[in-house]
C-alpha cells in the first residue's frame, strides 16, 4: 500500500486536471481550481523545507568550526534577520508611515540595496566568462562550427549600431542577413525543437498520469 496509494493519487489528480482541459463541467472546473491551489501550497511548503536544510547544514558547519564558519554565520544572521523583519511587516506588527505605501516597504529596501546589486552582479560576471570562452573555446573546427560562429557574428553585428568607419555599410549587409536568419532559418529550427520537446512532454505526462512512470516515488 506504500506505493499504491500515492500512485492512485497521482492518477486521480492528473486525470481531473486533464479532464478539466476538455470539459467545462462545473464540478470538474471547481475540482481543478482547488487542485491547482493545492499544488501552489505544496510548492511553497517544499521551498520552506529547503530552508530547514540550509539551516541544518550551516549550523553543523559552524559547530564543527569549518574553515569558512564565520561566513556561514553571516549567512544565517542575514537570513534570520531578514526573515524576522519581513514576517513582522507582513503580519502588521511594524508599519511604515501611515501604511499607504503598503506592507512591504522595509523588505523592499533590503531587496533594492542588498539583494538587487548582489544578484545582478553575480549574473553580470558571465559577460567576462563569455569573453574568455570566445577566445579559448569557439573554434571553427568543422563546417558546422563555422556556421554557428558565422550566425552568431551576424547577430552580434546586426543588433547594435556600428560607430566605426564603414559601419553603416556593414550594417546594411548584416541587417537583412540577420532578418533572414531570425525570421526563417531560426524560426524553422526553433519550431522543430519546440515540437520535439512537446512530444517529449506529452509522452512523459501520459506516463505519469496513467501511472506507468513511478520513478518519482523512489528514494
Amino acid at each position: 500500500m506504500k506505493r499504491e496509494i500515492p500512485i492512485a493519487m497521482t492518477m486521480l489528480a492528473g486525470l481531473i486536471v486533464t479532464a478539466a482541459f476538455f470539459s467545462k463541467a462545473p464540478w470538474l472546473q471547481a475540482a481543478n481550481a482547488e487542485l491547482l491551489s493545492w499544488a501552489l501550497i505544496f510548492f511553497s511548503v517544499a521551498f520552506l523545507l529547503g530552508i530547514g536544510n540550509l539551516f541544518r547544514i550551516n549550523l553543523k558547519q559552524i559547530a564543527m568550526r569549518h574553515p569558512d564558519w564565520p561566513y556561514k554565520a553571516i549567512l544565517l544572521i542575514t537570513l534570520s534577520g531578514y526573515l524576522i523583519l519581513g514576517l513582522l511587516e507582513i503580519e502588521g506588527f511594524i508599519v511604515y508611515g501611515d501604511g499607504s505605501l503598503g506592507n512591504k516597504v522595509y523588505q523592499d529596501w533590503i531587496h533594492g540595496a542588498v539583494f538587487k546589486p548582489l544578484q545582478a552582479t553575480m549574473f553580470s560576471l558571465l559577460a567576462f566568462y563569455i569573453a574568455s570562452a570566445a577566445f579559448r573555446a569557439f573554434r571553427a573546427r568543422s563546417f558546422e562550427a563555422t556556421l554557428l560562429l558565422g550566425a552568431g557574428a551576424v547577430v552580434m553585428l546586426a543588433q547594435v549600431p556600428l560607430p566605426i568607419p564603414g559601419g553603416s555599410a556593414i550594417g546594411s549587409i548584416v541587417q537583412p542577413m540577420q532578418h533572414f536568419l531570425m525570421a526563417f532559418v531560426n524560426t524553422a529550427g526553433q519550431k522543430a525543437i519546440i515540437m520535439g520537446a512537446a512530444l517529449g512532454v506529452l509522452a512523459t505526462g501520459l506516463r505519469i498520469v496513467l501511472g506507468i512512470e513511478r520513478s518519482y516515488l523512489s528514494e
Binding site: 489528480a13 512537446a198 512523459t204 505526462g205
Partner: peptide, 30 residues
C-alpha cells in the same frame, strides 16, 4: 509521498495539456 504524488500528477497534467496544445497543435496550425 502523498502531497508529492499529488503535485507530480497536477503538474504533469497541466504541462501536458497546455504544451501539447500550444507547442504541437497550434505550432503546426501556425
Amino acid at each position: 509521498r502523498w502531497p508529492l504524488a499529488l503535485m507530480v500528477g497536477i503538474y504533469a497534467a497541466i504541462k501536458m495539456t497546455g504544451e501539447t496544445q500550444s507547442k504541437l497543435v497550434q505550432q503546426i496550425q501556425g
